[in-house]
Amino acid sequence: MHKHIFVNLGVRDLKRSMDFFGKLGFTFDPKFTNDQAACMVIGENIFAMLLTTDFMRGFTDKALADAHQSTEVLTCLSCASREEVDTLVEKALAAGGSSKRPAMENGTDMYGRSFEDPDGHIWELVYMSPAFIEKGAHGG
């Protein structure tokens, strides 16, 4: 079975992206970081590979999506609390990100907000109560 996940995202300015995510508290694995790519550590086995668009083009013969114009993926990260959701979004906004939607709320069970990074990629941050996770989104 798979051991790690690497989400690959094209970025126009790698240093700007690393600075942005660094302000949110993310770190980068130097073993997989150079002038074309940066390995952002999200969790123990979860990584986002920030690839310069020129470098990313070498992995596909399809056109790369301009995340300011279209959405190819929504990356959702779980948070330990509503406060963590708010803190990360506020850090993203202070670092130059933008917010396009109001907060999403489902009583005390679920709370989420999102931001766009400087390249237009959408990051969803969500808190789900332990009871909500236990019963599942469909009440199972």
Rank of each mutant, 00 (worst) to 15 (best):
L77V: 06
M104A: 14
V85M: 08
N34I: 05
T60M: 09
L88T: 12
V85W: 02
A103M: 01
A48L: 13
S99H: 07
D54K: 08
E72N: 15
L77G: 04
V85C: 09
K23R: 07
F21C: 06
L24C: 02
A92M: 05
S70P: 11
M18Y: 09
A37S: 06
L24W: 09
D35N: 11
L50Q: 09
G43I: 03
R82I: 06
P30L: 00
F21A: 03
P30N: 00
A67H: 11
E72I: 13
A94N: 13
T87Q: 10
E44H: 09
G112I: 05
G112L: 08
L88F: 13
Q36E: 03
Y111Q: 11
F47A: 07
T108G: 13
Y111A: 12
G97Y: 04
K100S: 14
A65P: 01
C79V: 01
G25W: 06
S70N: 15
T87A: 11
M49I: 05
G96V: 01
S99Q: 15
A67G: 01
D29Y: 10
F55A: 09
L9F: 11
N45W: 00
K100H: 14
D66V: 15
L14G: 04
C39I: 00
E83R: 02
P30A: 01
L9C: 11
P30E: 04
Q36R: 02
F59D: 08
M49R: 07
G43E: 11
I46A: 15
V7N: 08
E72L: 14
N8F: 08
G112H: 07
H68D: 03
S99D: 13
M49C: 01
V41Y: 09
M49W: 07
E44I: 02
S99G: 15
T87R: 09
E83T: 04
G10H: 08
T60L: 08
A103R: 03
F59S: 10
F59Q: 10
